[in-house]
Design a protein around this nucleic acid. Structure first.
Lengths: 223, 223
DNA sequence: CTCGGGTACGACGTGGGACGTCGTTCGCGA
DNA sequence: TCGCGAACGACGTCCCACGTCGTACCCGAG
């Protein structure tokens, strides 16, 4: 057969659906799958490996195989690779990535602006203060900002793109000290949110990404 | 070791980068990788299987292994699985998916509105006419619409979400005949684009997705 | 000289077996 | 009763053998 491997993967996925197995629940063991699927252990293992790479199956050594949650995080290596190996050098692909982030975040902030509690606004403000020393604060800021949208998918998507960007950004040459600029941009965002001004928040977010794109344009692809 | 497999994958990816291999170029053969990485053939094969699932490696039987392009399409199984196995039944996750599509497309159509040539507008119109019989026309419509944005990533992203939606939508019960509704929505979009009215185009797109979300809400999760 | 087919070769695909390592469980002994 | 170690079953790694697919080469027919 030409792609028996793909067929095996599909059969395992179907098995999960047919048995109504949810994330965290155990899958049949390797020997059981060998019997069920009528393939050798090697073939089963290779199919499971592919499913694990997609987050569909989780393996805990010594315990067994379990249904995964397929978090978008598993795409990080693939996306990073795609950006790095992208046509026209990294820069073009990275710009595309940032534009997708901008698209998502500008749209989202328009939705959540006006729905944020003062407590949440204070938490956002505290995160901005910590951005100087803690790189994670930036990530947390965007995560906390969109949490109230109630959309787990878009939340993970934004995290994914953030991770990939900061993964690839390191290959763009020596890091620039943009701490002040970044903090100012985020301050503007919080201010607009405080004013319950959706349009201003969107503008502030756009301005933030304009600076990010400028940083990319300045960077020269490594020889 | 705990995750020697992940380390092997990373080493293969590094090998690709170190050798400046671009999509389509050949990778070392299995035996060569066994030597280079100091792992057994099974381990190498399993690592390669994972990379293939991520689109990073492409395998052509009888020929060898090649660098892949990591198209977003490879995430279709994972995303479909995630939606189906999502918390709170399919409906909630599917709604999240559609909202992401809405976010992207409403933002994008605002960017491309006013930049479309009359030839392209005519092509879009022709696709709308074919939506009745050809399900692919819908997909092509959205692809053609955003082609001029010049962002390959977002284009593939929209295609990916479209594929996943139509994959999962089939499990939502018997298909409804919404042909007229769909055509009317797309007609409104094209009309707004013809008028070079970005705001109206965004509104029309939003209306389109409102109907899609309504279709989801009507659907009852299968018992 | 040209053309065509058959063979040889090297690529990946599949199957089977053996042994190691990790976690858990259970029973024995203090 | 408590604790520790052996047994068990999970996945991890490795090795070898054979099958299948594509290509390239060689050689003979025309």
């Amino acid at each position: 057969m030409t792609d028996r491997d793909a067929a095996l993967q599909a059969r395992i996925v179907r098995l999960i659906h047919d048995r109504r197995l949810g994330p965290g629940e155990p899958l049949p063991t390797e020997p059981q799958l060998v019997d069920l699927l009528g393939a050798s252990r090697n073939s089963v293992r290779e199919a499971v490996r592919a499913l694990r790479a997609l987050g569909i199956v989780e393996i805990r050594r010594g315990l067994g195989m379990f249904v995964g949650e397929a978090p978008l995080r598993v795409f990080t290596p693939s996306l990073s690779f795609r950006i790095r190996a992208g046509e026209g050098g990294d820069v073009g692909s990275l710009r595309d990535l940032v534009e997708v982030r901008e698209l998502l975040e500008v749209g989202l902030i328009g939705q959540v602006a006006g729905t944020l509690s003062t407590a949440r606004l204070a938490a956002l403000d505290a995160l901005v203060r910590r951005m100087g020393e803690d790189p994670e604060a930036d990530r947390s800021f965007h995560a906390l900002l969109y949490e109230s949208a109630g959309n787990a998918l878009v939340l993970q998507l934004i995290q994914l793109f953030w991770d990939v960007y900061h993964d690839v950004e390191q290959t763009l040459g020596p890091p620039e000290d943009r701490a002040a600029e970044i903090e100012a941009n985020h301050d503007r965002i919080v201010a607009a949110l405080r004013a319950r001004d959706a349009a201003a928040a969107q503008a502030a977010m756009r301005r933030h990404f304009t600076d990010v794109k400028a940083r990319i344009s300045r960077a020269v692809p490594a020889p």
